[in-house]
Nucleic acid binder design. Structure first.
Length: 427
RNA sequence: GGAGAGAUGGCUGAGCGGUUGAAAGCGGCUUCCUGCUAAGAAGUUAUGGGUUGUUAAGGCCUAUCGAGGGUUCGAAUCCCUCUCUCUCCGCCA
């Protein structure tokens, strides 16, 4: 959520920044409603003060033994009633205005960081660096990972569709083992890098989704359990960040760094026909997520480190990738700055997203009301939140199957996974 | 699923409808004191919104005792609705 004070005082700058994302945004209604609300509040609190004074006065008189039926008391009560009648007119209007401002604020995305490249779409994203060209497999006639998976009998799409529906897969035998090995490997590495593992609930409430920015605007993208105000989580960033919702942390407690293995659920509404085969775009997929809750002064630094932590997994697996910095038109709703890691897929002859590391600054912290208090400083400050994938497990498996395929149809197991899988070749 | 209990500040825990934003204790902070440590003394100690002020310090108003309504001149306290937590029984991995 954006700071309403900032919108009030620097509306032009804020609007300019929002327009770097898209020109659809306007601030006029918010500014107007906010001004009205404050005008009413001014009158209302004055009336309230008067009413409180009357209340106190009556209390004093009663305590010192005044007759409740005395003219003085009766007239004071009347005065109190008058004030209350006026309040009853103002209060609902103010409340309504406040709610409108709030709901408009919740619909506004984060402002892009000053360093985020300006652009309209993904084609304007900027390649920051590239790694592992020497590991790009030579040759042609590569099989796609889903072909390899079906051939080896480790990915079973048909049966998954039978028990569920399209965009779900089942892993069998070495496929399931590979998924499990990847999860363990990724977690072990990230724990080593200083992240504390958590296993949060998968069904989470609406407040949590609002806290990280999935609601109210993107309800179409998550699965909901209608009877319960519970949702299937689209990413672990939601529950892990919301761990600290409505909390005031001590400054010494940050940075908090968490990693989590987590099944993610997405409706993928509006992507019909896209990536229908294989492990790339599923309604359910596993991810190892990285989340940081940090002091504003260290957040840029922590962001860079988070990207490095995600890259370290790809490097350990010797999978070629590139790092993109997303442009203002392509960064997510809550993000101010975002790097994507894209892994090389030989069959498609292209790079595909496998991790996305966002710095949300105080945007989510405001929505979720996560603050910290510094010793000696008065008041509280908002923390800053970051989240990134380290990595998407299914897509990692796809990349391994494709990059490690051998001419004989078998798939070599990356060195670092061999201790986990206890074999060096699949097939 | 059945029966019951409860939700108060960083924590524990009081609170007859009337200066209660809230006793007390613990913890935290500041100062003083003792040769250090330990101990002791005094003071201080929530968060948000508005307004004023130099985008300061501070002042003033207001709200907040799980959430939302209601009664009342006045609600932490009474009434209603909801949410959550806990205990016992049943069922269950």
């Amino acid at each position: 959520m954006l700071d309403i004070k900032k919108i009030r005082e620097n509306s032009e700058l804020v609007l300019k920044s929002l327009h770097q994302r898209s020109t659809e945004y306007t601030l006029e209604p918010i500014i107007d409603l906010d001004r009205q609300q404050r005008e009413i509040q001014l009158v209302r609190t004055e009336l309230q003060a008067k009413s409180n004074e009357i209340g106190k006065l009556v209390g004093q008189k009663m305590r010192s033994g005044a007759n409740p039926q005395s003219e003085e008391i009766i007239s004071l009560k009347q005065e109190g009633n008058d004030a209350k009648a006026k309040l009853a007119q103002l209060e609902p209007r103010e409340k309504e205005l406040k709610a409108k401002v709030e709901s408009l604020l919740l619909e506004l995305p984060n402002l892009p960081s000053k360093t985020t490249p300006v652009g309209k779409s993904e084609s304007d994203n900027v390649e920051v660096r590239r790694w592992g060209d020497e590991y790009i497999p030579e040759g042609s006639n590569f099989l796609s990972h889903d072909q390899i998976g079906e051939k080896l009998g480790i990915i079973d799409s048909e049966r998954a569709v039978k028990v569920s529906q399209s965009r779900f897969v089942a892993l069998v035998g070495a496929g399931a083992a590979l998924e499990r090995a990847l999860i363990n490997f990724m977690l072990d590495r990230q724990i080593e890098a200083g992240y504390v593992e958590v296993m949060p609930p998968v069904l989470i409430n609406s407040d949590s989704l609002q806290g990280t920015g999935q609601l109210p605007k993107f309800s179409e993208e998550s699965f909901k359990c209608d009877k319960d105000d519970l949702w299937l989580t689209p990413t672990a960033g939601v529950p892990v960040t919301n761990f600290y919702r409505q909390e005031i942390l001590r400054a010494e407690e940050v940075p908090i760094r968490h990693c989590a293995y987590y099944p993610c659920f997405r409706r993928e509404a509006g992507s019909y026909g896209k990536d229908m085969r294989g492990l790339i775009r599923l309604h359910q997929f596993n991810k190892v997520e990285l989340v940081k809750i940090v002091h504003p002064d260290t957040s840029e630094d922590e962001h860079q480190k988070m990207v490095k932590d995600a890259e370290a997994i790809l490097q350990a697996l010797k999978l070629p990738y590139r790092v993109l910095e997303l442009c203002t038109g392509d960064i997510g709703f809550s993000a101010a700055k975002c790097y994507d890691l894209e892994v090389w897929l030989p069959e498609a002859n292209t790079y595909r997203e496998i991790s996305s590391c966002s710095n949300c600054l105080d945007f989510q912290a405001r929505r979720a009301n996560i603050r910290f208090k510094e010793k000696g400083k008065k008041g509280t400050q908002f923390v800053q939140t970051l989240n990134g994938s380290g990595l998407a497990v299914g897509r990692t498996m796809a990349a391994i199957l494709e990059n490690y395929q051998q001419p004989d149809g078998k798939v070599k197991v990356p060195d670092v996974l061999q201790p986990y899988l206890k074999q060096d070749v699949l097939g």
